[in-house]
Design a protein around this nucleic acid. Structure first.
Ligand SMILES: [Mn+2]
Ligand SMILES: [Mn+2]
Ligand SMILES: [Mn+2]
Ligand SMILES: [Mn+2]
Lengths: 142, 142
DNA sequence: TCAAAAGTGTAGCCCTGGCTTTATTTGGCC
DNA sequence: GGCCAAATAAAGCCAGGGCTACACTTTTGA
């Protein structure tokens, strides 16, 4: 394989991975947040989800519909939303990863509020391998 | 402002920033890549753009249409695509940021190929403040 | 108790960013 | 010079993720 072909497939692979990560980003954020609300309030109401996500309630309803379709949440009409086992597992993984990303940013000298803001988008593109490296870095650093 | 209200607006702000960053991510990646192709080949053809992005050529055509609409590129029918001054400036900023993000990941112990893959998505969520911190970190580290 | 407020559902609109299919143009080559 | 392959354009489909407007249900409190 000539070098220029290699350059092209490598680039395409990168963009494909980024697109794949983006396509689950919304599910991850909703799962994490619904988990938070269940913890805090016992249930997650559409209105509360929408307010925290900064969207209108029909938008939150659509996202929850997708979560249900993917087996991550359940709900009955006019009742709260609840995560399934799979949803809870996802929420936990996402929450842990979020904290690691914020911690790494802060360790690198990023102000706390900025770290929180940037981590919200960056986290979804942090692969398992990178997450492991982040954790090693945080431990080594003490 | 009660603490719970604060929690909610903070979260909404985070998600809004992440959405805003995502909405320009595509422009950034195309600008960077068209800049690369102009450098390598003298012009950027739709077919080459599409192959490198890992999409079909109608998809690339649509993206280029958006770049033109935003004043970042120009092109005439059946001719190559070229960046405007604004497009070139964007491409340069994006390319520099991309390199910094990759360098930081590698400095944290992430393998080179993984760093390239993850950086492609993460870079778009790295704010100016965070980028500055990254650069200081890289310099301090030598 | 029951009316008003709050919450939820649903329909339908828009834009983005993928895709396939079909038409048109260009460019290389005999 | 003309033909054929490659490139480009154009049209139209789909899903995702935002929105508004409107209908319906549930909860609250006087
Ligand atoms: Mn997030
Ligand atoms: Mn998060
Ligand atoms: Mn990118
Ligand atoms: Mn990039």
């Amino acid at each position: 394989m000539p070098q220029s072909d290699q350059t092209e497939t490598d680039a395409a692979d990168r963009f494909n991975q980024a697109r794949a990560a983006q396509s689950v980003a919304l599910l991850e954020d909703y799962a994490e947040m619904i988990g938070d609300l269940m913890e805090e309030m016992g249930e997650a109401r559409i209105t509360d989800i929408a307010r925290r996500m900064g969207v209108t309630h029909p938008t939150a309803t659509k996202a929850v519909a997708r979560l249900k379709r993917e087996g991550l949440a359940i709900s009955r009409p006019y009742r709260g939303v609840f995560l399934t086992e799979a949803g809870l597992a996802l929420a936990d993984r996402v929450r842990a990863r979020h904290r690691v990303v914020v911690a790494v940013l802060e360790a690198l000298g990023v102000p706390a509020e900025t770290a929180e803001l940037d981590a919200e988008g960056m986290e979804h593109h942090v692969s398992e391998v990178t997450l492991a490296a982040f954790e090693r870095f945080l431990i080594a650093r003490g």
